[in-house]
Nucleic acid binder design. Sequence first.
DNA 1: TATAGGATTTAC
DNA 2: TAAATCCTATAG
Length: 220
Amino acid sequence: MNGVLEGEIAPTPLPLDFYARPAEVVARALLGASLRLVGHDGVVRSGRIVETEAYVGAHDRACHAAKGRTQRTDIMFGPAGRAYVYLVYGLHELFNVVTGAEGDPQAVLVRALEPAPGTRGTDGSARGDGPGRLTRLLGIDRRLLGARLDAPPLTLHPGRPPERILALKRIGVEYAGPEWADAPLRFVDADSAQLSVSLARSGSGYSSRGRRDPSRTPST
DNA sequence: TATAGGATTTAC
DNA sequence: TAAATCCTATAG
């Protein structure tokens, strides 16, 4: 049993060709994986990924690369296995992994993780349940834009896979129109308590194992 | 050069 | 329900 205990770091990072597959495949495969950063202070911070979103290419209206190849989206057109980090709302750094073939702009957004035992942010906070929170927890920022993910300081490692995976609609992309806003491209470990949005409120998506909660709260 | 809006979080 | 806060893309 090649067992990897929770919180334990596997010796070898995932290889770059792990990421050279369609974003929705990588997004599922990253659930359970460990994300690890050796900070500027020398401190190692890590966590187990429990929520991801796939941005599947230039035809995906919710993908930044739908606007074409710009200075901002350039990294997504490059080879897979690099970090795409950007600032949203002037406040939060979001971490993505570039996936797919070179020239095909795809990425996977990491939205939530379970902090490893002992991992705390420099500000003392210890929450990883949200795309902005997890970057603050680990200390990820735009200085890591373009960094290879198969060598320190920023690496991903095999971990304990989820028992149940749910596929739901992505968060915060209503502007992309119903076809893309409602596509089931968000993937979560159904048994994690660290998701960015509670499952009860994650409606209208579909689950890969049935079981939708009919009592999701209305917006009024 | 000016302006609108965003792959979010937090507080009132 | 709204503010915080700044970078990118687009228009002029």
